[in-house]
Design a protein around this nucleic acid. Structure first.
Lengths: 343, 343
DNA sequence: TTGTATGCGTTATCAG
DNA sequence: CTGATAACGCATACAA
């Protein structure tokens, strides 16, 4: 019972104009070997008759959908919203559409989503992995079929899958070094699942900075959680129980840093005098919180654009040989009051 | 050149098992009139052969895509990210997929997006309108074809299109009354395009609250912009030039309220003593800013869930008669320090 | 420049 | 319970 009247097809247009369906099809595609006059007539008639091209039939014939799939851990984060906005803009400008789903940080749902994308016959897949994803076998069916799979942010090493990310190691090294320069000696690091390279590398950068400054790594100062606001509050309570009190915190995201900082402030801790703080992401809230949060600027929008552009390039030059080149985007340390000690 | 080997079809499975393609098709759909044994065998063989159902062909036959379209003004806002997360969850649980696009607040792009959705043959469309959309003719092709169009948040009155929103008039009335009770007499209202009912009704609620408290509306105190952070800064400078200085601000979103508040604070204005503040949305930043911002809690996630559920209901009972009922969701005033004056 | 004919892979109808 | 067959609407190879 879909729609009162029957849908118009190219045959209906052909009948009306006493030409063949093939010509109508060609005219609608702006095929070079159709006279200007017929094209104009066909397009006008199509409009008048309320024709809409049937993408099912067209896709079936062409074996491509012009749809790109996107699988992310969560849709509702500032960072991811920016990424998606960037992706959508680029795809839309290139006449591709975007179909999205979230894994909610579980590998099982990520697998289900991947299968749905496979059945929906996306022309390419953009992926940022869930916390607990241990392998990427669920993307093999795409790779086997030469459907490009591009990882961004939460990436995975796989031959044939380009990756887009920032130099997390370097950024973490810089931010930790900065804290040390501000006089911090007992720096807590709050991070998430070490299965994800982003977090493992931030941790590694933190370690290296300590080492280069002759500070021994104290694993009691490393807290692994899910970097949520709630986790930040819990972490704050953990910190308060440490003795001596840490004098610095480097959280792997702003969200967690902010709630942790606020909880500590309520407990009477002075930021940055007692404990200096640094986050990661440059969330809007990072320059709302007082004192403003030192962080790493890490533009989601740009990452989305770059990922989508790389996808488009891959699809356009599908026949040519493509080394799976990866892209490392720039990030920058933004020093704000939360880590600045007046000396 | 898509994929090295040929894609497996139900015919290949049929050949291998020496049964008909029809039986394979039925088995894969778990059709009741297929023996358990055949079903099991077919499903196993399909898996072994690396079969994936061809949704193009299937959709072509069934004339439905199981895809829902979503058009929003911007993807990267806290509110919208929550909405989308809610929508995706519900759709995914019901085996529908989500295809999204953003109008970037322009009607022209909204029209283009709508056309793309039409060609992509979405089974239903969820829409939140751009600032400058003056009519909804571009959704007529859907309505004509009985494809459900549901408006949420930035809605439009149209017979046959359900709407989901909150009572903006009431919320604005409450928040303005609250400011008045705190002693505010010259309350600035910052809002956006009055083409959008959400903003027009908030403005109306503001006016009504003034009126009920015998405060004369002063249109010089009403600022219309795009509610961005930048607009908040500009608004702050406008406020500073007003004399006498206003003693309250009700901004139609938190984002703008926060940047305005921060700018005023830097200029030496005390919040709430000199100027009391209230926003709208309950953005995460609203409880990070100091003083914490009084606002209206307005859960995007729930709105997304409700919209998606209504869509699913519509699609499942497509044959039955459906009055285009609308839904008004609950919202609540959250009073925080930004508007609390110690008396 | 246009027309003819065919197949893309399913699902649904009908018959057994 | 299973099989044969006919659409679904379009794009393209081939013919004219």
């Amino acid at each position: 019972m879909n729609g009162g009247e029957k849908e118009i097809t190219i045959y209906d247009i052909a009948d009306k104009l006493h030409i063949s369906a093939a010509t109508v099809s060609r005219a609608l595609q702006d095929h070079p070997r159709v006279s200007k006059k017929t094209k104009k007539l066909v397009i006008k008639t199509a409009g008048d008759m309320g024709y809409r091209s049937n993408s099912f039939a067209s896709n079936l014939r062409k074996k491509s959908s012009n749809i790109i799939g996107l699988i992310v851990p969560r849709l509702n984060s500032n960072f991811m919203a920016d990424v998606i906005a960037g992706i959508e803009k680029v795809l839309n400008n290139n006449n591709y559409n975007l179909i999205i789903s979230q894994s909610l940080e579980t590998m099982q749902k990520e697998i289900n989503n991947a299968n749905a994308m496979l059945v929906n016959r996306v022309d390419g897949l953009l992926v940022s992995l869930a916390y607990d994803t241990t392998n990427v076998d669920h993307f093999e069916p795409f790779i086997k079929r030469n459907i490009p799979v591009i990882f961004f942010d939460r990436v995975f090493d796989h031959d044939g899958c380009p990756q887009i990310y920032i130099d997390n190691y370097k950024a973490a090294y810089e931010i930790t070094s900065h804290l040390i320069k501000q006089g911090c000696k007992r720096i807590v690091h709050i991070t998430a699942s070490q299965l994800r390279k982003v977090y493992a590398e931030r941790y590694a950068g933190y370690q290296k900075a300590l080492e280069d400054n002759n500070i021994k790594l104290d694993t009691n100062l490393v807290i692994i959680n899910d970097l949520s606001s709630e986790a930040g509050i819990t972490a704050a309570h953990q910190l308060l129980k440490m003795s001596p009190l840490p004098d610095g915190v480097f959280s792997a995201n702003d969200n967690c840093a902010i709630s942790c900082m606020q909880t500590l402030k309520k407990a009477g801790i002075r930021i940055p005098a007692d404990i200096a703080f640094a986050g990661f992401n440059n969330d809007p809230s990072s320059c709302v919180v007082e004192p403003n949060l030192t962080t790493v600027n890490y533009k989601g929008y740009e990452m989305g654009e770059v990922a989508a552009k790389l996808m488009i390039d891959n699809l356009i030059n599908k026949d040519e040989f493509h080394p799976a080149h990866s892209l490392v985007l720039r990030s920058e340390l933004i020093v704000r009051e939360s880590s600045l000690r007046v000396i």
